[in-house]
Computed example of a mutant assay.
Amino acid sequence: MSQNELIKTKLSFLGTALLNNIVESSSVLSFEKDTELLREGQFVKVIPIVLEGLIKVFSRFEDKELLLYYIKPAESCVMSFSASLKNTPSQVFAVTEEKTTVILLPVSKVSTWVKQFPTFNQLFFEQYNIRYSELLKTINHLLFDKLDVRLYHYLVEKKEFTKKNPIKISHRQIANELGTAREVISRLIKKLEGEHKVKQHSNQIEIL
């Protein structure tokens, strides 16, 4: 499938006129896993829409990460969108979770498309709604769930997002994203394994 066909297939909901503008003005790039696309403090020059793959968006405090959300195909980054419109530095990091193909929308064009194409606004309004719902869900987990329950939900969501099972992930990465220590994660994964909810393989975790 050509790049133009991929764009029109994944983003058909934006409408022909806007898609033609996007194809003409934007670039499509592929990135390997663990590629940093955006860092905290960086000014946003392009806004990504994922065509294939997955991007992890997170904030960082000292040596701890806080996972904010994943950007899946046909989705974009609301934090990048907001920072670009305000011309303020990014408050987040964005890193590819797997090999990922994105279309990069130039910020100089985005401000025009926002005014010209209602479907473009709808894309980001929907993204804000999704992220707000995810935020409420995260707060609910933090307030009412024990860490082992949060860990299990995290692994299930990771499986759903990546469409892979087992998941190739280290205890340290999980600990960073859940804001705890690696030793705690190792202990809780053994607990989940004893409950027959997960199974550990070499550098992988299988959700049962």
Rank of each mutant, 00 (worst) to 15 (best):
M1S: 13
S2P: 08
Q3N: 15
N4W: 01
N4M: 08
E5W: 02
E5M: 09
K8W: 03
K8C: 04
T9G: 11
K10D: 00
F13K: 11
F13S: 12
G15A: 04
G15H: 03
G15N: 05
T16I: 10
A17C: 03
L18K: 05
L18M: 04
L19C: 12
L19T: 07
N20M: 07
N21M: 12
I22L: 10
I22G: 02
V23G: 01
E24S: 15
S27L: 06
V28E: 00
L29W: 01
F31Y: 15
E32R: 09
E32C: 09
E36Q: 14
L37T: 07
L37W: 09
R39W: 01
Q42S: 06
Q42E: 15
I47N: 09
P48T: 01
V50K: 01
V50A: 06
L54V: 03
L54A: 05
L54Q: 06
F58S: 14
S59N: 07
R60K: 15
F61V: 10
D63C: 04
K64N: 07
L67A: 02
Y69F: 15
K72I: 02
K72M: 05
A74N: 10
S76G: 15
C77L: 07
V78S: 08
V78K: 01
V78Q: 07
M79T: 09
F81A: 00
S82F: 01
A83D: 01
A83K: 00
L85S: 03
P89I: 01
V92E: 01
F93R: 02
F93S: 08
A94V: 04
V95C: 06
T96H: 04
E98H: 01
T100M: 07
V102D: 03
L104N: 09
L104Q: 11
V110L: 02
V110A: 11
P118R: 03
L123E: 01
L123I: 06
F125R: 06
Q127L: 05
Q127C: 05
Q127Y: 03
N129D: 10
I130E: 15
R131L: 05
R131D: 11
R131G: 01
L135D: 00
L136K: 14
L136Y: 10
K137I: 04
K137F: 11
T138G: 06
N140R: 13
N140V: 05
H141Q: 15
L142H: 13
L143S: 08
F144T: 15
F144E: 13
K146D: 13
V149S: 14
R150D: 05
R150F: 07
R150K: 14
Y154P: 00
L155W: 08
V156T: 10
E157S: 13
K159M: 15
E160I: 14
E160M: 13
K164E: 14
K164V: 07
N165L: 01
N165H: 10
I167K: 11
K168A: 12
I169W: 02
S170Q: 08
S170D: 04
H171I: 00
Q173M: 09
A175L: 02
L178W: 06
T180E: 03
A181I: 07
V184C: 06
I185G: 11
I185W: 10
I185S: 12
I185R: 08
L188Q: 05
I189W: 10
I189D: 13
K190G: 00
E193K: 12
E193F: 02
E193R: 13
G194M: 08
H196S: 12
K199I: 11
H201W: 09
S202W: 08
Q204S: 14
I205E: 06
I205W: 08
E206V: 04
E206R: 14
L208I: 14
